[in-house]
Amino acid sequence: MYNIGVNQPTDEFEHTYIENLSNSKCNLVQVDSENMDAIISDLDGVFLKEDTNQNIGKICGLIMKIKEKSNPLIWVFSEEPSPIQKIIYLQMGADGAFTKEDEPEAVNLMINNSLKRYQQDKKEEMIEQFVDKPCGIELIPHNLSVKFSGNSEEIALTRLEFQLMQLLCDNYLKGVSYQEIHEHIWQTSYKNNKYKVANLVFHLRSKLEKSGVEPMLIRTVRSKGYMLSEV
């Protein structure tokens, strides 16, 4: 079952252009700027539909916010066919841009094919990552948690925290720059936004400390970034 966010009431969405989406193993969840932070990490894809209240500016704003918080698939549907708008959405990072001129069945197939590849890539990534790290850390991808040697408790992480922990484990005892962390997790260009990375590290350290793990396991490398040291 895929979790798909839509930017309008789900009952209205199910009776619009892509009426078969919810019947193809997709669970539709209404998403907006207010609840996005809470649910975006659980979504496999987001479908944004233009209407009188959701113009190109607001859609572009939502795409940017989604990209900042997580990395799901993104599709946009425009009522009026406009090649320029399609290009803009794709340049913003959308995985597909459709209009009412596109056949519903074809759009539905493209979305489902994208989701299948997305899930397959995630499964292959999880298989590769399901190993005990040399520093006594076990990453558990299927439920986004981490376990430390000598501690039977699994520590639940958010998707971004898990990605950060994974990157640091893969570079054990090596400094990882702010830029490398930012581009790996958010998949966007780094614009010297150290605060965003530092904020994520702060939350991860706090979560580890509450579970009895030494927070300075993640050490700050001056003027560079962070490094995972010995437990």
Results as ranks from 00 to 15, higher is better:
residue 44 D to K: 15
residue 142 H to Y: 08
residue 98 F to V: 05
residue 112 N to G: 01
residue 209 E to K: 09
residue 46 V to I: 14
residue 182 H to Y: 15
residue 47 F to S: 03
residue 76 V to Q: 07
residue 10 T to M: 12
residue 145 S to A: 12
residue 144 L to I: 08
residue 189 S to T: 08
residue 114 S to K: 13
residue 80 E to P: 00
residue 98 F to H: 01
residue 9 P to R: 10
residue 207 K to N: 04
residue 77 F to R: 12
residue 89 Y to A: 05
residue 44 D to F: 14
residue 113 N to D: 13
residue 143 N to E: 06
residue 65 K to C: 08
residue 229 S to Q: 03
residue 123 K to T: 10
residue 109 L to K: 14
residue 205 R to S: 06
residue 151 N to G: 00
residue 224 K to G: 06
residue 4 I to H: 10
residue 69 K to I: 08
residue 122 K to Q: 15
residue 49 K to D: 02
residue 85 Q to P: 04
residue 225 G to D: 05
residue 223 S to M: 08
residue 28 L to K: 08
residue 10 T to R: 10
residue 66 I to F: 09
residue 229 S to R: 04
residue 46 V to N: 04
residue 162 F to P: 03
residue 209 E to P: 00
residue 41 S to L: 02
residue 102 D to W: 05
residue 19 E to A: 07
residue 80 E to D: 11
residue 31 V to C: 06
residue 139 L to M: 04
residue 202 F to R: 12
residue 64 M to D: 09
residue 185 I to H: 14
residue 191 K to T: 12
residue 191 K to E: 12
residue 93 G to S: 10
residue 35 N to K: 10
residue 184 H to V: 03
residue 221 V to H: 03
residue 20 N to F: 11
residue 137 I to M: 00
residue 123 K to V: 13
residue 74 I to D: 00
residue 30 Q to M: 15
residue 221 V to P: 05
residue 199 N to G: 03
residue 86 K to D: 09
residue 8 Q to L: 13
residue 12 E to Y: 03
residue 202 F to M: 05
residue 128 E to G: 14
residue 6 V to Y: 02
residue 90 L to S: 08
residue 195 Y to M: 04
residue 10 T to Q: 08
residue 226 Y to Q: 01
residue 35 N to P: 11
residue 33 S to T: 14
residue 97 A to H: 12
residue 109 L to P: 01
residue 17 Y to T: 03
residue 155 I to P: 00
residue 111 I to S: 02
residue 107 V to N: 09
residue 133 K to L: 01
residue 102 D to Q: 07
residue 160 L to Q: 12
residue 74 I to W: 11
residue 110 M to D: 06
residue 217 L to E: 02
residue 28 L to C: 08
residue 54 Q to V: 11
residue 102 D to M: 01
residue 139 L to D: 05
residue 224 K to Y: 14
residue 187 Q to E: 05
residue 104 P to H: 06
residue 116 K to I: 07
residue 205 R to Y: 06
residue 9 P to W: 04
residue 116 K to S: 02
residue 111 I to R: 04
residue 158 T to D: 05
residue 164 L to W: 03
residue 214 E to S: 07
residue 208 L to D: 02
residue 206 S to N: 15
residue 24 S to A: 13
residue 9 P to V: 05
residue 8 Q to R: 13
residue 35 N to E: 05
residue 112 N to V: 04
residue 83 P to A: 07
